[in-house]
Simulated assay, not measured.
Amino acid sequence: MQGIGFSASSTSGSAIAADLVPASRLTEGIGYYTLANTIGMALGPGLGLNMFQRGSWWLFGAGTLIGIISLVTGLSLNYERKQSSVKKSSSVSQTAPHAKANSKLDMLFEKSVMPTCLVILFTIMPYGAIMAYIASYGINQGIENIGLYFSMYALSLFVVRLGVGRLSDRYGITAIIIPGIVLMFCGLIVLGWASNLTIFLISAILFGLGFGVVFPLLQATGYVFCSPDRRGVASATLFATADLAYGLGALILGIGIKFLGYAPAFGGLAIFTVVALILYISVLYPRLKKRRNVSKQ
Score class of each variant (00 low, 15 high):
Ala242Gly: 08
Met107Phe: 02
Ala18His: 11
Asn293Trp: 05
Tyr33Phe: 14
Thr27Ile: 00
Val160Gln: 11
Gly254Pro: 03
Asn37Phe: 13
Lys290Met: 12
Thr237Ala: 03
Phe272Glu: 00
Cys226Pro: 07
Gly187Val: 05
Pro264Leu: 04
Ala154Val: 08
Leu197Asp: 09
Thr34Ser: 10
Val164Thr: 15
Tyr280Met: 02
Leu20Arg: 15
Met125Asn: 03
Ile124Thr: 03
Leu218Pro: 12
Tyr171Trp: 15
Leu217Gly: 10
Asn102Trp: 14
Gly267Met: 08
Asn293Ser: 14
Phe6Thr: 15
Ser151Asp: 07
Gly187Phe: 02
Ile69Thr: 09
Gly172His: 05
Leu157Ser: 08
Ser85Asp: 14
Ala250Val: 02
Leu118Thr: 01
Asn102Ser: 15
Gly222Pro: 11
Ala62Asn: 05
Pro22Ala: 13
Asp243Glu: 12
Arg292His: 11
Leu157Glu: 04
Glu144Gln: 14
Pro179Val: 11
Gln297Pro: 01
Val283Pro: 04
Ala42Trp: 00
Ile4Cys: 12
Ala245Gly: 03
Arg166Trp: 15
Leu20Ile: 14
Pro115Asp: 03
Arg231Phe: 12
Asn293Gly: 09
Ala240His: 01
Ala250His: 00
Arg25Glu: 15
Ser7Gln: 05
Ser9Met: 14
Leu20Gly: 10
Pro264Phe: 02
Ser103Tyr: 13
Ser90His: 12
Tyr32Arg: 12
Val86Tyr: 13
Leu209Pro: 09
Gly210His: 07
Gly40Phe: 05
Glu110Tyr: 06
Ile30Pro: 02
Arg25Thr: 00
Ile134Tyr: 10
Leu20His: 08
Tyr280Val: 01
Met125Glu: 00
Pro228Phe: 00
Lys258Gln: 14
Phe122Pro: 13
Phe158Tyr: 08
Leu71Gln: 08
Gly254Ser: 03
Leu59Cys: 05
Leu65Glu: 00
Gly232Met: 10
Ala175Ser: 15
Leu197Arg: 07
Gln53Pro: 07
Gly5Gln: 06
Leu269Thr: 06
Ala36Leu: 14
Thr198Ile: 07
Gln94Glu: 06
Leu217Pro: 11
Ser76Gly: 09
Tyr127Ile: 08
Ile39His: 11
Pro45Leu: 03
Lys290Glu: 14
Lys82Ala: 10
Gly48Leu: 04
Gly256Ser: 03
Leu248Phe: 11
Gly208Ile: 07
Ser195Phe: 09
Phe185Thr: 15
Ser70Arg: 09
Phe259Asn: 09
Leu279Arg: 02
Ser93Ile: 10
Ser9Pro: 09
Glu110Gln: 08
Phe215Asp: 11
Val190Gln: 13
Lys296Trp: 10
Ile130Val: 15
Phe185Cys: 08
Gly61Lys: 05
Ile39Phe: 13
Ile39Val: 15
Tyr246Thr: 05
Ala245Asn: 04
Cys226Arg: 02
Gln219Tyr: 07
Val119Pro: 01
Ser156Ala: 15
Ser227Asn: 11
Ile189Pro: 06
Lys104Tyr: 13
Tyr171Ile: 03
Thr116Met: 01
Asp169Cys: 10
Ala263Met: 09
Val294Tyr: 13
Ile281Cys: 14
Glu110Asp: 07
